[in-house]
Design a protein around this nucleic acid. Sequence first.
DNA 1: ATCAAGTAGATTGTCTGACAATCCATGATG
DNA 2: CATCATGGATTGTCAGACAATCTACTTGAT
Lengths: 221, 221
Amino acid sequence: MSLSGSTTARPSVIYDALRAAILSQSQRPGQAVTESAVALAFGVSRPTAKIAIEQLVADGLLHREPNAAARVPTLGPDDIRDVFDNRAIVESAVSAALARTGAVPPAAVAAQRELLRHPGDFAPFDIAFHRALGAGQPSPRLARLHALLMGEVELGIGQVHAHHLLDAATVAAQHQGILDAIIAGDPALAARLTRDHIDGARDALLIHLTPSHDSTAHGDD
Amino acid sequence: MSLSGSTTARPSVIYDALRAAILSQSQRPGQAVTESAVALAFGVSRPTAKIAIEQLVADGLLHREPNAAARVPTLGPDDIRDVFDNRAIVESAVSAALARTGAVPPAAVAAQRELLRHPGDFAPFDIAFHRALGAGQPSPRLARLHALLMGEVELGIGQVHAHHLLDAATVAAQHQGILDAIIAGDPALAARLTRDHIDGARDALLIHLTPSHDSTAHGDD
DNA sequence: ATCAAGTAGATTGTCTGACAATCCATGATG
DNA sequence: CATCATGGATTGTCAGACAATCTACTTGAT
């Protein structure tokens, strides 16, 4: 059957599209993502859509309860804290492992360069930098743990990052410090700088989620 | 097999049975686990079997390449090192988090008690102790990271643990030290003892995997 | 006899359509 | 007004089928 799309509408295609929609806030938090709707939108059957949705759930980008539709999760302060605290644990180990090799992933350097060239909206390059760190380090299992957390990190940043919490120069400087420590072969320093960097990002996000700050949300639900 | 006549043969049932078969070495490492065979053995269709297999692959208990049958992975020295090093990172954070609460999961105490009562084959209770630590700690995401690693840990111990590497008394003493540090509310000590404990287990397993004198492995049982 | 090419088998990847089970909202009824 | 039955909606699960890909073997030529 020739549906609208090209040759094969594999689950991964649906996964990517759905993921982009969630991270770009096209799918508002709390909004239901039903299997039927996804199947209809992509012209596939429900089981096919189900597979893609389950993949998103496994990555933390969707929440689902036994017999209800999947929903885009709303990351509250507790979630942000939990995600970033665990990321600090994992990513500091990532930086330490990289420092032991003494080599920096080329993708991280590229992301760092692009970040400085786009100071207005640098969030994608910030994410790319950290993903490159995780992916470029020797341990495959540590890379997997890191990638697992980055999904929710990206979701949390997307939900809050529109407010320009930090400026590109500060972020870039901290990134450069991490890279320098890695090149210098100093695992302890690389781990400490990474931890501080992530803690700072966590606190910046939490400030925006604290009700003391004005003009954050519209009305109480 | 002994599974028949059940109207609700959910994928989780197949998952559990397959998992037990792998961990009990019923499925020898390297052996292929085809979707057809699983479907036939459990009396379900291939997609149902596929879901269970993919779940095992996600947990690291099976390896699969794009167009080949899934196989039980053989954990070599590099794999053991990688699994246990990452476990040390995650589980030391688990112990530290528990120490901050000052409370010990009851399941961990129960596992510790059972371990002392079964000094002959204490591997299951050793695993249960560490799983209880991960599951009983506050952060849901850290618990998930820990559980993800424990699958391969259990696989690695199962592949080597038949040789009685450590005696129950030593393991129990180390466990008790961790519990005491948690109760005392000393995160740094709990983390350090946990790391040492895991590093010791790693080294014990690696000794048995080092081909010091026996080059060709002929597995007569 | 050795090597290359073609072919047959096996296995996975994917899809379709359907039925059963469960949850939520609505409306009827005491 | 509260309680319960009913309807719709959604997920959970399943069986069967076809296409794509890899492997191993047979066949043929050098």
